[in-house]
């Protein structure tokens, strides 16, 4: 009988060790930046300038697009709406979805904000002068360019469609347009960040 005791204790000890050494914390689904990059911008909202760093304590989900974009932008904003609406009210209070127009010549701050709020009343939309928008896009490595130009009111904008997550003034997480649609995983990531 006694000779079973040692192996049994050994097995239990190994199991215990395995448990203690298990990977800790949350395995992020989005692309985590190992060296979170400091980021900031000031753009125009419908009621005045909005500064990214003036949303302290919030995880900011940032997407660049244009309001005359009926496929890529709504697909991502609908994905962000699904994720946001899955959070509890307390969690939502610490998350801000921000849409930035890369078509500032046509999208006023009011247009951008109205567009964002069509998805959820708590979302905000920003635009600004050409220079400010270009700088903000550059900060995040966002490329944008007019295409299918038929006139000053009739063109499309090709643009980077990544969703950026900014926390405490730093870019911490990225989602490609494909990844951002996996609502469960995005929600789990946000909960791990908050």
């Amino acid at each position: 009988m006694r000779r079973w005791v040692f192996p049994a204790v050994l097995v239990l000890a190994l199991l215990g060790l395995g448990y203690l050494l298990r990977p800790k914390g949350h395995a992020f689904y989005g692309t985590r930046l190992l060296n979170p990059k400091p980021v900031d911008f000031t753009l125009e909202g419908p009621s005045g300038p909005v500064r990214l760093s003036e949303m302290p304590g919030k995880a900011v989900l940032l997407f660049f697009g244009f309001t005359r974009c009926p496929d890529v932008c709504p697909t991502t904003l609908l994905a962000l709406k699904r994720a946001y609406e899955r959070l509890t009210p307390e969690e939502r209070a610490r998350v801000q979805v921000v849409f930035v127009s890369v078509d500032p010549e046509r999208d006023t701050p009011e247009d951008a904000d109205r567009y964002a709020k069509a998805f959820n009343e708590a979302f905000i939309g920003l635009s600004g002068n050409l220079e400010a928008v270009r700088e903000a896009a550059q900060t995040f490595g966002v490329f944008y360019q007019k295409s299918q130009y038929r006139g000053p009111q009739d063109y499309l904008v090709d643009h980077t469609a990544t969703t950026f997550v900014v926390q405490d003034g730093k870019l911490v997480l990225l989602y490609s347009p494909d990844k951002v649609e996996a609502t469960d995983k995005v929600v789990a990531d946000l909960r791990a960040l908050l």
Partner: peptide
């Protein structure tokens, strides 16, 4: 890819 960045767009 444009300018080393992934870009999405639409064309008729």
């Amino acid at each position: 890819m444009r300018d080393g960045k992934m870009v999405m767009g639409m064309r008729p």
